[in-house]
Structures are given as structure tokens and as C-alpha cells.
Design a protein around this nucleic acid. Structure first.
Lengths: 154, 154
DNA sequence: AAAGATATGTTATAACATAACATTTTTGAG
DNA sequence: CTCAAAAATGTTATGTTATAACATATCTTT
């Protein structure tokens, strides 16, 4: 792994640890290992991919081990579940109340989490026109990312 | 089943048959049976629920039988797959290019398909700010429907 | 009637997720 | 400190969703 990536992951781990301490979110060795796997993976990841990697250190790990940690972190806004991909992603900014938009590239599978309050407002307004109360959460938006739409790709 | 519901389902079947004929979408006995099951169910439905019902008439039906029909209809914009629910729904208005918004009630599971071009514009605009090309499709919006937010519910 | 395309049948398994109960570890009250 | 409750993790089994791969049947066109 390249040095700059090691540094990046290390920064992310430091940041999330501070966040968890502030919020009273308990980290355990298992939970930290799973966060580390997710940050190192650097993109959306499935529960079973986490399991495969976790087994390098813990050969006896079973699905519930992973799913319980994922559930705990979802409940504490540390990670998102991406329903349309059956995958998970560490939240870029848990302070933003765990909402925002996820721009999902259908070509390269890259996920870019952004926060646009105008769009949240637009959805809220549109919904209310039908008497529907929009529940703030992560909105999954599918399309093609900048890299993939810039020529280059066949 | 109540008479008005029978009438409604019958109308829906008539409408979709005309639509398919216009568009060159081939209906077969199996495909019609599955559409009928979906319209009669009247809400979002899982592939395995369709399978259970299909087996009343075709006891030997297996998952691929259902999934292939669902795939065919998705490709022809006759039904939507709802990723966040692992479920399927007949499209209210296939002519609207198979896009729009699906207001999904997290309490009663009701799905209401609507079409708001302003919202599509808002999402397109927001996405493009990040160099992302929004792919028009069904947007899944979670929240609470009018019925469920009107007191009454505990 | 034959050839190719389309649709469906059939068997097996992959991929995603949770229920239920056992054990271990942590935490807090007394 | 220590015991009891709570929290976390281990373990086994199974539920749920979806597809791969190959066989057979039907339809279509010549």
C-alpha cells in the first residue's frame, strides 16, 4: 500500500476515534478492525467482503460478527448502508446528522457523499405536496461520475 | 375480493395490455399471470411472494421463472425494482420514461409513485455541481405517508 | 420442415442477512 | 472488591433474495 494512502487511512482512523469518543460511541478491538478494513478498502464494501478480510486476522469470524458491528455503527451514524448496492460505507461527516446525498457511479461503482441542503429542501417540498413527510436520510443518486463520463472510457 | 377492486385490477390489466401492444412488449400467459398477481396484490411485492402466489396455479414454478419475467418487465419499463425494499411494483405510468419518485412509507410500506419534474431538475443540478451525471430513474424517497402521520397511529 | 430465436423448465448454488442461544467481557451498584 | 446486570462476541443454524448453467419447449421465419 502506498505511503499516502497509509497516511490517509491513519488520518481517517484518528478522526473517527475522536468522533466516537466525543459521542460516547464505544470502540472495541473488533469494531476498530472493521473500521480499518473499511477505510483501507476505500470504497463501498459488502458485509461479506469485510468478513473475508476480517478472517485473515480472525479465521473463525462468522457473518453475525460483521453484521452486528455494521448495525451498531449504523445506529450511531458512523456508517451508511447503501440499499441499492447491498453495501456499506463509512460516513464522510457523521456530524451532518447522517443525511445528505450519495452520488453512485453505475460504471465504476465509486461513491461520493455530498451534502446539499437545497436538494433536501426540494425533496421535502415535493414530498409534502403529497402529504408525505420526508425522513431525512442518505439519498442514493445513481448516474455516471466525472471520471467515467470524461471520454477515456469506451 | 371486492367488486371495485376487481374492476380496478381489470382496468389496470387492460391498460397495460394496450401499452404492451403499442410498444411491442410481448405478453405471454406466464407474464400476464405475474402482472395480474402484482396488480391484485396492490402494493410493492417481493419476488418470492409472487412465486408463492404463482405456485397456486403452477406448483412447479421456481425462482428463475419469476426473476426472468421481472427482468423482462424492468427492461421494458413495465415494472420498477425497489432496491431499498428488495421488492417490485408495476409502473404507474410507463410513458413517463420510467422515471419519477417513489414515496415509500416506512410505517405502512405503502408506495406512491409520483412525477415531479422540478425535483428531477434539482437533483440533476445538484449532481452536476460535482461533475456527476444523474441517470434518470426512479428515486426512492423514504418517510411517512399522510395516513400514517395523521394521528390515529400509535 | 428445418434453423434460429425466444421463452420456459429444472437443478444447483451464490450472495445477503438474521434468529437463537452460549460464552465472555465490561460496567456499575452495593 | 465482588457480584449481578448489561454489553459484546462466539457459534450454529437457517431465512431471504437472486443468479448461473443447462435442458426443453415453443414460436417465427424461411
Amino acid at each position: 500500500m502506498k505511503a499516502d494512502k497509509v497516511q490517509k487511512v491513519s488520518n481517517q482512523m484518528g478522526q473517527i476515534k475522536r468522533y466516537c469518543e466525543q459521542k460516547g460511541i464505544k470502540l472495541t478491538p473488533l469494531r476498530e478492525e472493521i473500521l480499518l478494513i473499511m477505510y483501507q478498502f476505500g470504497q463501498i464494501i459488502t458485509a461479506y467482503e469485510i468478513l473475508r478480510q476480517l478472517r485473515e486476522a480472525r479465521p473463525n469470524a462468522e457473518p453475525p460478527t460483521v453484521y452486528r458491528v455494521l448495525e451498531y455503527f449504523q445506529g450511531t451514524s458512523v456508517i451508511h448502508r447503501i440499499a441499492s448496492k447491498n453495501a456499506y460505507l463509512c460516513c464522510i461527516n457523521p456530524d451532518e446528522l447522517h443525511r445528505g446525498q450519495l452520488l453512485l457511479c453505475d460504471i465504476c461503482d465509486e461513491a461520493n457523499e455530498v451534502f446539499n441542503s437545497g436538494l433536501i429542501q426540494a425533496v421535502t417540498d415535493c414530498s409534502s405536496r403529497y402529504g408525505f413527510q420526508f425522513r431525512d436520510g442518505l439519498m442514493e443518486i445513481h448516474g455516471v461520475c466525472a471520471k467515467c463520463s470524461d471520454g477515456a472510457m469506451a
